[in-house]
Structure formats: C-alpha cells, structure tokens
C-alpha cells in the first residue's frame, strides 16, 4: 500500500515537473506591433519568433499586435523581433532585409509603413549612376558590324546565359545564333577565314542546335564546350572588333577542363555559373 502511495506521489511529481518544464520560466510579456497582412503571415511570424521553452509569440492579424512572452534570463525582446524581421516582417524596432521581404509570398507583401524611404536626392544620385552604367552597356551592345561579329555577339549572349545558369535564355539565344549561322554569306568572307569557316560550320550548327533544343543546363554546357572551341578557331583568324579573352577552367567537364571566350578579362565561368563563378584564368588575349 505504502509503495503504491509512493509511486503515485512520484508520478504526480513527475507530471507536475514536466508540465512546469514546458512553460517559460522567468516569463515577461509584452505587446508589440509587427507589420503583416494575413493568416499566412501569422504563421511565419509566430514560427520565427517561437523558441521552445524560451519565447512564444502570438500575433493578431487584425490589430497587427503581437503578444510576446519570453524567459527574460535567456533572451530579450530585441532577439525575438530580430528573428521575426529576418523572416521578412518589420516592427517598430527592426526592418526586414529587402531580400527577405521580397521572398514573401505575394499575399504577405504588406505595406512597409515603418520603413522610411531613401532620401530623394540620394535616390536621384543612385539612379543617375545606374543609368550611366546602363548607357555604357548599351553602347557596347550596339557595336556589331561584320556578319561574323553578330555571331560572336550572339555567342557571348549564350555564354552570359550560361553564366547565369539560365537554361531558357541560353536556348533562346542559341536559336538566334542558329539563324545567324544559316545566313552567313560565305563569299563575303576573306580567304583564310573562309577556310576555317568551312571546317567549323557544321559543328557550330550542331552545337547551337543542341543548346537550343534543350533547357537542361548540363547538356547545354557540354555542347558549349565544343561550340567554344570552334568559335575560338574562327575568331583567331577573323579577329573580333574588341579584345577577346580566351579563358580556361581546369575543373569543368569533370576535371578535364574546358575553355570559353569572353569580352571581359575578369573570369565569369559559364560551366559552373555562380557555383564557381570566378574559377578559371585567361590563357590567351586575342586582339
């Protein structure tokens, strides 16, 4: 009988212990405003604010007010609001990074009342700068004269798409390249260029077709390897309008290495894209 009593007591103690354990100790409760829209916001806000046994957040989508309860020995209000801001939601203490806000689903992209817009004058300055950059880019883009030059330009467009790991764009650009390849007037080419053209033309078309017909970045990159080799042969004799850099990445193509051409000295690797963007080096400068 006594033992039963003991067991009972132990159980009661255990139960009360676990239940008290699940609560937040040294609790402090505060009300704060957190900007947001909908039920989905509520989920994200509460999930990012909650920490087991340390903090809990209850947000009301009507009033935009959150009740936050936390163990004041283990954390503080700022920590919780910072976590919530990093998930995309502004409060009167922290503003979410723009990237986090932009990642929120459309319905959750609330109006950012707490955020002060960038001063007008500064914005103008920045825009001016951007515009200047843009103009510069445009002016380089419009420099295409000879018929091979348009092909090179298009090759670079394919390359840039691969740098961005954008299979769709690469395919579209390769399609354009293909049409350009078809309309080249061989007779207008100089003698030595003509000779090379005859050699590489078939392969160029084949690789361009491969890239255009697929959205699979891996297949596109395989074809791009040989495409680059052939364009290189061509550009060696014909010379491009601007300086072109022949670049090499020893890691591409499963460690066998692969080459490509670029208009910039700086390495932007089309075989890895952002994964290994700067891998590679310039092996030849063609002027």
């Amino acid at each position: 009988m006594k033992s039963i009593k003991n067991i009972l007591m132990l159980t009661v103690m255990l139960v009360s212990f676990t239940s008290s354990y699940a609560q937040i100790k040294n609790a402090s409760t505060q009300e704060v405003k957190i900007y947001g829209n909908c039920g989905m916001c509520e989920k994200t806000i509460e999930k990012s604010g909650n920490l087991k046994n340390i903090s809990s957040v209850d947000w009301d989508k009507e009033t935009k007010m959150a009740t936050i309860t936390f163990d004041k020995k283990a954390t503080n209000k700022d920590d919780i609001l910072k976590r919530i801001a990093l998930s995309g939601y502004d409060s009167d203490f922290f503003l979410a990074p723009d990237a986090a806000y932009n990642k929120l689903p459309g319905c959750c992209q609330y109006e950012r009342e707490a955020k002060t817009p960038v001063k007008k004058q500064m914005k103008a300055n920045m825009e001016e700068k951007m515009k200047a950059n843009h103009d510069e880019m445009k002016s380089t883009e419009t420099q295409n004269i000879s018929q091979l030059e348009t092909i090179y330009e298009n090759y670079f467009a394919v390359k840039d798409a691969l740098v961005e790991t954008d299979g769709k764009e690469a395919s579209a650009k390769a399609k354009e390249l293909l049409t350009l390849l078809d309309v080249v007037k061989m007779g207008d080419l100089e003698m030595d260029v003509h000779m090379v053209w005859m050699k590489v033309m078939k392969d160029l078309k084949e690789d361009a077709t491969k890239i255009s017909q697929s959205n699979d970045i891996k297949k596109q990159r395989d074809a791009f390897d040989t495409l680059s080799e052939n364009i290189y042969k061509l550009i060696k004799v014909s010379k491009a309008e601007t300086t072109v850099y022949f670049q090499h990445c020893p890691m591409a193509n499963d460690g066998k290495g692969a080459n490509w051409l670029s208009k910039e000295n700086e390495v932007k690797n089309p075989y890895y894209g952002s994964k290994m963007l700067s891998c590679g080096k310039v092996v030849e400068t063609i002027k």
């Binding site: 801001a85 990093l86 009167d92 203490f93 922290f94 503003l95 979410a96 002060t116």
Partner: peptide, 9 residues
C-alpha cells in the same frame, strides 16, 4: 539613429 534596418545574414 532610429529603427534598425537589418541586412541578410
């Protein structure tokens, strides 16, 4: 001064 604008971690 004022509200804290965070950057992406």
């Amino acid at each position: 001064e004022g509200i804290k604008q965070l950057t992406t971690p």
